[in-house]
Computed example of a mutant assay.
Amino acid sequence: MHFSHHPAIWAAHPELVAGVLFARGIRADLAAEAQAARFEAVARERLAAAGSESELPEIQAWRRVFARMGLKPTQYRCASESLLRRLRKEGQMPRIHPLIDLCNAVSMAFATPVAALDVAQIRDWLQVCPAEGSERYLAFGGELEHPEPGEVSFVDAQGNAHARRWTHRQSGLSAVREGTREVLVVCEAVHATARQDMPALLDALAQALREAGATTAANRILSAADPRFEF
């Protein structure tokens, strides 16, 4: 299997820095609570210093990207902004699955979208690309949707759309669940210091996964010149 971004994505968003990680040994009883709490504490400190998630440079950069795609940034937020907004408003995050909780916490700490996808639900390959409009997106409520033509999505070989509006919302099809054993984690940043920050994010996530009892098989930073990750 392999993951990549379509050349059109790199051309339209040359500031993009993508980090990918493949992990095995995922279980519903991973001991990730302490690690998630540690990253959430970092997120709280950043929110307290900034006053709001919208003031963080990572979030501002994604808002600019969404605006360029013709999306209203306050209507369609990148995943990390939505998580930080919820943390600020509610004061705490719900516990869903140890891996999801950890990835959400890392996403908030680095203010960067982090998507964890169940590899068993991906068909042959996965690419971030402009959708044709015929792809099938399974919402968490069970509804079947189709991305708009040209909308950026995560698309596999069978035409499954694993995200809507790029980093806005994942699909329920490849969401991590109790039976998940292998995951592909995709982290995407577009802010000015992303090239320095993304390696730190990947290292921190890989270390936290190892501490929790999972096995990180491989991770890479992708670029327009080296856009493909085999896993």
Rank of each mutant, 00 (worst) to 15 (best):
H2Q: 09
S4V: 05
H6M: 06
A12G: 13
L16E: 04
L21A: 04
G25M: 04
A31S: 15
A31K: 13
E40Q: 13
E45H: 15
E45A: 15
A50W: 12
S52Y: 06
P57E: 15
R63K: 09
V65T: 13
F66S: 14
M69C: 14
K72H: 05
P73K: 15
Y76I: 12
R77H: 12
C78L: 11
A79M: 14
S82Q: 15
R88F: 12
M93Y: 01
P94G: 10
L99S: 04
L99K: 03
L102F: 04
A105F: 04
A105D: 00
A109K: 13
A116C: 12
D118A: 00
R123S: 06
D124H: 12
Q127Y: 09
Q127A: 02
Q127W: 11
S134C: 08
S134F: 01
Y137S: 11
Y137Q: 06
F140C: 09
G141E: 15
G142S: 11
E145T: 00
S153P: 10
D156Q: 00
A157S: 13
H162K: 14
H162D: 03
R165N: 05
R165C: 07
W166G: 04
H168F: 13
H168E: 07
R169Y: 09
S171C: 11
G172C: 10
V176F: 01
E178G: 03
V183T: 03
V186E: 02
V186N: 02
H191A: 09
D197E: 15
M198L: 14
A200R: 13
A200S: 08
L205S: 09
L205M: 04
E211S: 14
A214V: 02
N219C: 15
A225P: 03
